[in-house]
Write a protein that binds this DNA or RNA. Structure first.
Lengths: 233, 233
DNA sequence: TGTGACTTAAAAGTCAGACTTTTTGTTGCT
DNA sequence: AGCAACAAAAAGTCTGACTTTTAAGTCACA
């Protein structure tokens, strides 16, 4: 079962979406629903549903008598998880990772500050557990296990901020961290300093020290930016 | 033409989308496509297209033999402009404005810092123009004109950051600022301090002083948060 | 030559109906 | 009580006919 059966239209999207975000059809290209339906061997109804979804992502615009035209990349819903996944799978993955990392660097420190104020006892416990897990797996080529704890750590912080917009960045951060581990230069064990910082953040949140939590998370962010050579001279 | 003719399915969405985001159908509610099609007096095909769009926004999930079930609010694509508009039009508008303002406060300072490094000459000019426009309209009940300049100012900053994720928050910030002017206590002229800060940010960006631009924008952000009573005791 | 009104045709949009597939819940047997 | 077969409900799919919008071409007239 290569393609999970979420319906025909979804299978079409899995192919057409990445093609568009990869720039395979340049901005302004005109597609015709009937032709697409033939190409993908589905009925027009199914193709129409797929087009409607692409339209809701602002990837294309459908106009009578002209067809389905590909919109400029600047119009795309870059926060749509689906679009993000498609773009991360494509050629401009590095560029995408930079954008996402910057966003993360801007938001996470603020989220950590809020978490220090609003985190529940359970969330504090979860955070500490994650930090300890990171420490435990930080040496000896246990990158995958480390990644799991790292992702969970950041997800808990974002959730604990109490802001739904921040919380929704959890999946996005997960993608970035996974991408870093899997596609970046990541042969060695993680930076010990980063591990320590995470432990300290958990501590600061537990103590309710918002300013410290924010400052420490900002240090983590700086590290993430430096990894991608985004730094001020 | 009350409802612009973007197709039948769009008209259905204009009604069904807000109903769902307003919590009119509680989490877990089950809708049936056929019934909805009858209720809205459209064909099943049209209703299916509408459902597909709602599905892509993670507002609902469609499963065979059970129907179209409303997903928990935590799953919704809260960054989808359409969803944001629906929610801003609904009852939890205040809550929504808080979330958005927090996000804005986290991102804009960083964006301003980047803008100071990467803004083009045209963008610097536009920024200065906006700031001057704000000064010119800051007194004498010209709130609407002031708003236009304010929105444009922040949009230029976000665009000048060179980060597409930041740039895409332009519309969102516009919504927040418009909401603030139209639905908040905004009978008086804008705070003179805020106006001055905007002028200074334009200055800092022009000089390429990233740290100053960031710090000043952070002050603007603090003001925005204080307006909504989001402040540290 | 230019311009404005009229015609045409291409593509999306809409609809109705028949059929398929998956999944759930029930029933009946051991 | 547990399991297996069965029935029905709802989404999913396909097809074909029809409508609507609108870009583009055409023709007459100034």
């Amino acid at each position: 079962m290569t393609t999970k059966d979420r319906g025909l239209h979804a299978r079409v999207l899995d192919s057409l979406g990445p093609a568009i975000t990869a720039g395979e059809y340049p901005e302004g290209s005109v597609l015709r629903t009937d032709e697409l339906a033939q190409r993908y061997e589905v009925s027009r109804s199914v193709m129409r549903e797929a087009v409607r979804v692409l339209e809701s992502m602002h990837l294309v615009a459908s106009r009578r008598r002209v067809g389905v035209t590909v919109r400029p990349a600047g119009d795309w819903n870059v926060y749509d998880p689906q679009v993000i996944r498609w773009r991360l799978a494509g050629a401009d993955r590095p560029r995408q990772l930079r954008s996402l990392t910057m966003l993360r660097s801007a938001v996470e420190p603020v989220a950590a500050g809020l978490a220090a104020r609003y985190a529940s006892a359970e969330q504090c416990a979860a955070l500490t557990e994650c930090a300890l897990g990171m420490v435990a797996t930080s040496r000896g080529q246990q990158l995958e296990a480390y990644l799991v704890h790292d992702i969970e750590f950041h997800r808990v912080v974002l959730n604990a901020s109490g802001n739904e917009m921040f919380a929704h960045l959890g999946d996005l951060v997960a993608e970035v961290l996974a991408g870093r581990t899997h596609h970046q230069v990541m042969f060695e064990d993680p930076d010990p300093a980063a591990v320590t910082l995470h432990v300290s953040v958990a501590e600061a949140v537990r103590e309710g020290n918002a300013e410290r939590a924010e400052a420490l998370t900002r240090e983590i962010a700086v590290g993430a930016l430096q990894e991608l050579d985004i730094l001020a001279p």
